[in-house]
Computed example of a mutant assay.
Amino acid sequence: MVTVKMLKPYYVKTEEKFVRIILAYQYFSVMMNKKVYQFIPVEANEIRIDRKTKRIVNTDAVFAFQNGKDIITISMSQLISIPEFLEQLHGIAESYYLTEESTSITDQQKEVHRIIKELEINNIKRLIDKALDQHDYYMFIKLSSLL
């Protein structure tokens, strides 16, 4: 039986229709057969939730977990069947859900979202440049995957 030991997002990104919960090392772990397995971003590394319906969109995602040399994969459909996973997940995404009155996003709000997204991308590019300057290969790869 699988239980969720810890679920913390590396960061949460909001889009017009979705909340994207990005996962990273040491932020997500499960317990199986009395062993703790740490999430490793080998296959899927995000959970996408519809902001309006509050449903998980990427139900076909498969997550990899590691304990020493032992690696297991758990599908999103298996994780969804764990009540504590859903509770923690919706606790993280709750403040990003759309309410009835907020579903009619104005043109001004769309422009603000576009500008914020552009600023986020520019910031990631600056951080990539910094990682290159510092010869930090790990951070370069990590940040490059965000683009």
Rank of each mutant, 00 (worst) to 15 (best):
V2L: 10
V2N: 15
T3E: 08
T3I: 04
K5Q: 14
K5S: 07
K5W: 08
L7I: 02
V12I: 01
K13Q: 12
F18I: 13
V19Q: 07
L23R: 02
Y25S: 11
M31L: 10
M31Y: 13
M32H: 14
M32S: 15
N33F: 03
K34E: 15
K35G: 04
V36K: 05
I40K: 15
V42C: 14
V42A: 14
E43R: 09
I47N: 03
I47S: 02
I47L: 01
D50E: 02
R51N: 00
V57S: 01
V57Y: 04
D60R: 15
D60C: 08
A61W: 11
A64G: 10
Q66D: 09
N67F: 01
N67D: 05
K69F: 13
D70L: 10
I71Y: 14
I72K: 08
I74G: 04
S75G: 11
M76T: 00
L79V: 06
I80G: 03
I82S: 00
P83S: 05
F85M: 04
E87M: 09
Q88F: 09
G91I: 03
G91N: 08
E94C: 15
E94S: 10
Y96G: 01
T99L: 06
E100I: 03
E101V: 09
S102H: 02
S104R: 11
S104M: 14
I105G: 00
D107I: 11
D107K: 09
Q108H: 11
V112P: 13
V112T: 13
I116N: 09
E120W: 10
I121H: 12
I121N: 15
I121K: 15
N122C: 07
N123S: 13
K125I: 08
L127A: 07
I128F: 07
I128C: 00
D129F: 15
D129L: 13
K130W: 12
L132N: 15
D133Q: 11
H135C: 15
D136W: 02
D136T: 02
F140H: 05
F140Q: 06
K142R: 01
L143V: 11
S144H: 13
S144F: 12
S145L: 08
